[in-house]
Design a protein around this nucleic acid. Structure first.
Length: 278
DNA sequence: AGAGTAGCCTGTAAGC
DNA sequence: TGCTTACAGGCTACTC
């Protein structure tokens, strides 16, 4: 699933391939009425055509394109199954393409999204969309104190709080499980109940899990169309290097105990019962 | 207010 | 073999 490392990998690739390019045409599929948020598709079209991409930023799992001529920002959330592909004009069609943005170098960006959960915004100020997001876990300013503040007074299981984007931005089911395994913390521990030592381990675990995913250009699980792929259609490699996620029954890489699967906050959760005691 | 959960979606895998 | 059901999960909206 696209989480922070998958979106950041995409951002870096976009920065190298579309900066300075101008949008010449946009097509939006007729059967995704929820895709464009807050304005009519025709208005989006008028504001986008002729705009140049001056920057590509990321906040949490959101991609943020800075447009030229004061046209504002285009924001994209891939949600569960959304992939952004950069193709040459006339390249074979990609199934489940929901919108196409033609560029002035005979290429196009295609948003391919089997489940239709993806969302697009065009706003003057990105904080209109990102206002509720918690801190960026890879920023220098994300300290152990930042983490402690995010978990303060939260009695929910630590796993559920890690998935809460208003607490910390960018973690999804895979990297939350990975971070907790690296930290040696049971996912059902109440978030506010961690000791200072445990907070330090979790802080380190979160950053390590995300850095590992980034290093591998993201995780692409299984073989289906739901999986994350990068801008050129290539998969990530991190699924080969995960510690806990979807490794049910396989030996923990640290101690050899079989990885267990439980439900926490309605999400499947993977842990080593020895390294992550209740 | 914080916690828990149904629903949005559709392909895949499991179960009968 | 073929049909039905459960499941995957980011996020919002809703209830308790």
């Amino acid at each position: 699933m696209p989480e922070l490392p998958e979106v950041e990998t995409l951002r870096r690739d976009l920065e190298r391939s579309i900066l300075g390019r101008m949008a010449t045409e946009i097509w939006i599929a007729p059967d995704v009425p929820r895709l464009v948020q807050g304005l009519a598709p025709e208005e989006l079209r008028q504001r986008l055509i002729g705009a140049r991409f001056q920057g590509v930023q990321r906040r949490g799992k959101l991609l943020i394109f800075l447009l030229s001529d004061g046209r504002g920002y285009l924001l994209l959330h891939r949600r569960m199954s959304g992939n952004l592909l950069h193709r040459r004009n006339g390249a074979p069609a990609d199934p489940y393409t929901r919108f196409v943005l033609s560029l002035d170098d005979d290429s196009e960006l295609r948003f391919v999204d089997l489940r239709k959960f993806g969302r697009l915004w065009l706003v003057d100020d990105p904080t209109e969309v990102t206002a509720d997001l918690g801190p960026e876990p890879l920023e220098e300013t994300f300290t152990i104190e930042t983490l402690a503040e995010a978990l303060r007074r939260r009695q929910a299981p630590i796993k559920a709080v890690l998935l809460d984007q208003t607490a910390i931005a960018g973690l999804g089911n895979l990297y939350a499980d990975e971070a907790l395994h690296l930290a040696g913390l049971h996912p059902r521990r109440p978030a506010a109940g961690l000791t200072l030592d445990e907070l330090g381990r979790l802080h380190r675990g979160i950053r390590e899990a995300l850095a590992e995913g980034l290093h591998d250009r993201g995780s692409s699980l299984g073989t289906s169309l739901r999986d994350h792929i990068n801008l050129d259609g290539s998969p990530g490699e991190h699924q080969h290097h995960v510690h806990a996620f979807r490794r049910t029954g396989q030996p923990c890489l640290r101690c050899g105990t079989a990885i267990e699967r439980i439900k926490v906050g309605g999400r499947s959760t993977h842990l080593c019962p020895h390294c992550q005691p209740a």
